[in-house]
Design a protein around this nucleic acid. Structure first.
Lengths: 205, 205
DNA sequence: ACTTGATTTAATCATTTGATTAAATCAAAT
DNA sequence: ATTTGATTTAATCAAATGATTAAATCAAGT
């Protein structure tokens, strides 16, 4: 049995397959994705795909795991920092995530779809909870709202303002007659506006 | 060839199949949904399913079409009304949609996933654009923001605040340690808060 | 009782699709 | 030149799955 040899400088085939898999999986979702399409997208053949990753599911788990990590990575720093103000953190989150999502617009709907389709599988990997719940960030929110509202409302609000436009972008582009570049310009504007909006919402009553 | 006979009082088999299809399709998405599962869920057999709807795709189109209609139905009234204030309309939208989504929590991610997976198919059915773009509602928003921001920002904001929590609910429930009933209570709170928040955002600068 | 249409049962097809295998080829290192 | 591992080619499997069919059964209306 042959095995891959490049362990360090693996910028060739293995990574190429993972990139292709990421693209096809995020575009179509797990069930609709075809390993043949992934192989073609990667510029290799089906046999080699199964030679590197033993199965579709293994390949998916690999890609999915990395995507989730990417999703969480940006958070951890922000959520547990104890020096910055709430609004500073909101600004940082908006900046980071909008930048990430401009590059990977299908990421959220992919992640959220697969979680919905397979909740048990992700219940395990859900260190998300430990990252966010009881974070300094959540305490700051609780402080601002002082009992009036559940802090999770503002987590919903922030994420909703940042993420939702990307999830609904096909619809929004149609409604607003927006070219892709125009849509991205709007997202650029939102980097500035979201902290302002959140601030206003926190004060409102 | 046999054909169905109940045309008016069709509250039995055909509707039962559609309900089952709606459930399975929205839960798993088109690709992952199995016609066998739909038949089982409907309490009938595979042959009968194909006897009523000629194919999986036809069944899907039927269900999907109705779902889209449901999505748009609520809008049309609100968006073209010329008597109510902007905030009154936001209140009405939040009420209507949160109520709808409490009953069908998987609806948004299903609709948006399928649009993403198959944009061409829905480009045709997109009378959505005509319903929303150039509506009185959008003009009211444009008036409020007077050139400062693209009105679509506020459409994103309203929809994001209303819809996103349902899309991300598995995640949010985990993070917030929320039971389903507690989650729904929060959504109830949002009916009141979203108009207040939107008002605050419109004033903010 | 008879007819008619709805529904089931059971078997079967054809296609798609994930997976595997063996042999051939290619490229690079030794 | 030889060896070694990566990759291709081509063929094939087995399972899942959408679809179809024929015959039997059931229920309701006449």
């Amino acid at each position: 049995m042959a095995k891959k040899t490049n362990i360090i400088e693996d910028h060739s085939t293995e990574e190429k397959i993972k990139q292709a898999a990421r693209k096809i999986f995020t575009q179509k979702g797990y069930a609709a994705a075809r390993t043949r399409d992934i192989a073609e997208e990667a510029g290799i053949n089906l046999a080699l795909l199964n030679y590197y990753f033993r199965s579709k599911e293994k390949l998916f788990d690999m890609v999915m795991g990395e995507q989730m990590q990417q999703f969480i990575r940006g958070m951890r720093g922000v959520f547990h920092n104890e020096d910055k103000t709430l609004i500073q953190k909101v600004t940082e989150m908006a900046d980071n995530y909008i930048e990430l999502l401009k590059a990977n617009p299908d990421l959220p709907i992919f992640v959220l779809s697969e979680i919905r389709a397979n909740p048990e599988k992700f219940a395990a990997k859900m260190n998300v909870k430990s990252v966010i719940a009881n974070s300094h960030f959540m305490k700051q929110i609780a402080e601002e709202t002082k009992g009036k509202l559940h802090p999770i409302h503002f987590l919903m609000n922030i994420m909703g303002l940042v993420v939702f436009p990307f999830i609904a972008s096909p619809l929004l582009k149609t409604i607003g007659n927006l070219k892709h570049s125009e849509f991205n310009n709007l997202m650029e504007e939102r980097k500035k506006m979201i902290p302002i909006w959140i601030k206003a919402m926190l004060k409102a009553k």
